[in-house]
Amino acid sequence: MENANFLVVEDSPTMRQLISFSLKRFKNAKIIEAVDGVDALKKLSGPDKIDLILTDINMPVMDGLKLVSLVRQNAQLKNIPIIIITTEGAEEDRERGLALGANAYISKPIQSSHLIKTISELLAF
């Protein structure tokens, strides 16, 4: 699959840049950035059809778990694959995210190759 649109939801500019940098490995990928859950919902209602969401958990205004929950409740957005990215390594956080409907979970510090592999599996590139 080419020309995928990725939504990166992360409050840290460093992490957003790092993730976006990794996503450029996908041919003709379009990377849309959001600084928190509210900003992400705005971008999701924009003109670009999002193929995959990568979201941090701990963010101001609206955190990643709330975003996952709202996306899964929305009839038009509920099928978008979601990867949760967080500093938390605990099993309970992973379970919370997955229980809310996230498809995969990646812990920081992010390994680019691991991120690419996870995305490729989800989108069956």
Binding site: S12, P13, T14, M15, Q17, L18, F21, S22, T87, K108, P109, I110, S112
Partner: peptide, 29 residues
Amino acid sequence: ANLYVASYQLHSTLDFKEVIQIVQEIVIN
């Protein structure tokens, strides 16, 4: 990529607080 991003971010601002915030982000993330 990590080194590039770290370097790029460190020199992206002249605001002292922001620089410290970026150093923290690099150390955490």
